[in-house]
């Protein structure tokens, strides 16, 4: 962050400008979050009814639960796969979009539309198409390659299908940012390399990637958040956490404990722990990028 001279000094004015945002965030995000934290020390019946203070019992229950540990492991693995997968695929497509001379707009729109599709609708449609015995995609896969894709009973397959769908859904978001970032790299920086006849792949790795590293950092953080929080409808509608908890992501477990298994208190504790985990991850990511990202210009 550079020290640049800030033209305005009035703390009151700054406060006034920030107040609307802060009020909304405090009322609708912080207050419920604090309430969640409070609930994590209670046990409940149906949603919030029948609250009883139980101290740190909920946290103890989590710490001693093998299922929770597995869920944690699966979530971290899932996040890693989704972050890497999404960035790799979207970088590939974005770079091609950036390099293509004709029809860029058409290609771009065709590439980012899944992002505009709600996750829940996407999950419903894909479940229908990918159903192990009834789906159209699995039907043709089997007809053409002889492969059966029984991801209803195979944990690794279910995990793989979930990652693929999650990546597919998040491509558009990444492509939007990446294409813009690539377009913003000043020609002057790339001209000499181009004149030297540097190949396309090496241009990407040596020239572009360092220059768009702030965008990459941002996307790593946003994709991490997406993988931890946003993939919930996919699990809920496609795998329900199974088979054998292979896709039991923390966010799904939390939701199911709160709304299906009627343990809002426990779910609140899970939510608090999840908040902690993702905060730490985000902090590490930002720290790492502060040290390594190349801020051009």
């Amino acid at each position: 962050m550079s020290d640049f001279t800030k033209p305005y000094r009035s703390t009151t004015q700054a406060g006034l400008l920030l107040v609307p945002t802060l009020v909304v965030l405090v009322a609708f995000l912080y207050y419920p979050a604090v309430e969640t934290f409070r609930l994590s020390f209670f046990q409940t019946l149906l949603l919030g009814t029948g609250q009883q203070f139980v101290g740190i019992d909920n946290y103890v229950a989590l710490a001693t639960s093998a299922e929770y540990r597995q869920s944690l492991f699966v979530s971290v693995l899932f996040a890693a796969a989704v972050v890497v997968g999404t960035l790799a695929v979207s970088l590939f497509i974005s770079y091609l979009l950036f390099e293509v001379r004709a029809g860029a707009s058409g290609y771009l729109l065709a590439a980012i539309w899944p992002y505009a599709l709600p996750t829940a609708v996407a999950a419903t449609i894909l479940l229908f198409m990918l159903h192990p015995t009834l789906g159209i995609v699995t039907h043709y896969l089997e007809a053409l390659t002889g492969l059966t894709l029984d991801w209803f009973t195979s944990g690794p397959l279910a995990f793989g299908v979930l990652v693929a769908v999650a990546v597919w859904k998040q491509l558009g978001y990444n492509i939007i940012f990446l294409v813009a970032a690539l377009n913003n790299v000043p020609e002057t920086l790339t001209e000499s390399a181009r004149l030297d006849g540097v190949g396309r792949l090496r241009m990407l790795v040596r020239v572009y990637l360092p220059l768009i590293s702030p965008t990459l950092t941002f996307l790593v953080v946003m994709n991490t958040i997406y993988a931890f929080f946003g993939a919930f409808p996919l699990v809920d509608l496609m795998t329900s956490g199974g088979p054998n908890n292979a896709t039991n992501l923390l966010i799904f477990k939390l939701y199911r404990d709160a709304f299906s298994f009627n343990s809002l208190g426990l779910a609140s504790a899970e939510s608090t722990v999840l908040f902690g985990i993702v905060s730490i991850l985000m902090y590490v990511q930002l720290r790492f990028s502060d040290r390594h990202a190349h801020y051009g210009a």
């Binding site: 419920p32 709160a258 809002l264 779910a267 609140s268 939510s271 908040f275």
Partner: peptide, 9 residues
């Protein structure tokens, strides 16, 4: 970092 499902109640 505050997931929507928990905030709902």
């Amino acid at each position: 970092l505050v997931p929507v499902p928990v905030r709902i109640v």
